[in-house]
Design a protein around this nucleic acid. Structure first.
Ligand SMILES: [Mn+2]
Ligand SMILES: [Mn+2]
Ligand SMILES: [Zn+2]
Ligand SMILES: [Zn+2]
Lengths: 143, 143
DNA sequence: TTATTTATGCAACAAAGTTGCATTTAATTA
DNA sequence: TAATTAAATGCAACTTTGTTGCATAAATAA
């Protein structure tokens, strides 16, 4: 797996540093998006807070991860589709924010419906967030 | 107009105080959503920062205004449809966030398309934000 | 191996939002 | 109208998320 991470960094022209490999490996293993504070808690003081922010920013700029804002306005990050580059993100999928566990899921199979917006306005990116109860929380409730 | 504002506060069971009338009148006159920091700048030190937050929270809970997060995760508020109550917000319209002037517009005529979400997940509220160039900024660019 | 470029760590700062508590004000009651 | 009561306000202190400047360290290139 470490090879895979190194390749991904190299492919996007980023130096293979300890913090970058670590952050990328954590994000790759998750099925929900992670914020800087969450990553800080997972990784511990091994990586500086500021470095974490800068790693995330670098990854986003290169198209390795994409940013989603949760219901509190906190930035959360998830790994991108492999077709993303520094020129263009192709993550036009719906996101789901669980109101119980607060996790943010990438609904990779749900693409965002087309919209006809009013004359005069120009659309660049569209963002769709569904708030509700996720599958795991529903199981806990009903089970 | 002041009568209208007083009626609105009374209708939702809120005391008619100076700060509340002032904030509501400012929000009513705008065509874009306003954040606490923006309102603070508009209104000045006449109203305390914390009071502003509490007025906005009270308005939101009663269904007088609704909250939208802009591209930076900052909460912005706009007046609700008159059918909103403390039981239920009926603001299921699309929002537009201009990437130049950063204003957030309520697209009252654009309702959010229906989505079929995966089994196991339960949807409560759906949020749709279009990022792009607003009509005013487009005019400045082309004009 | 040395030079060069880039990333990291630390300290300090900033913006947005929250909490506790004493004081004031609006609405209610007498 | 005046006293009462419940709620709202103002102020100070705090928290969380995110940024910036700068010296040091590490990765890649020569
Ligand atoms: Mn995603
Ligand atoms: Mn709206
Ligand atoms: Zn959940
Ligand atoms: Zn604009």
């Amino acid at each position: 797996m470490n090879d895979e991470l190194n390749d991904l960094l190299e492919k996007h022209g980023l130096k293979k540093t300890g913090p970058r490999v670590k952050v990328l490996s954590v994000l790759k293993l998750r099925d929900t998006a992670a914020s800087q504070p969450e990553l800080e808690e997972i990784i511990g003081k091994e990586i500086d807070r500021v470095t974490l922010y800068r790693v995330l920013t670098a990854f986003e700029e290169k198209g390795i991860i994409h940013k989603v804002l949760d219901m509190n306005g906190t930035a959360k990050y998830a790994v991108c589709d492999s077709s993303c580059t520094d020129k263009q993100h192709k993550d036009e999928h719906v996101h789901f924010n669980c109101t119980l566990c607060l996790n943010v899921y990438c609904m990779d199979t749900l693409h965002i419906p087309q919209l006809v917006i009013p004359a005069g306005f120009t659309s660049q990116v569209v963002n769709m967030m569904v708030y509700g109860i996720c599958d795991k929380c529903n199981l806990k409730l009903k089970g």
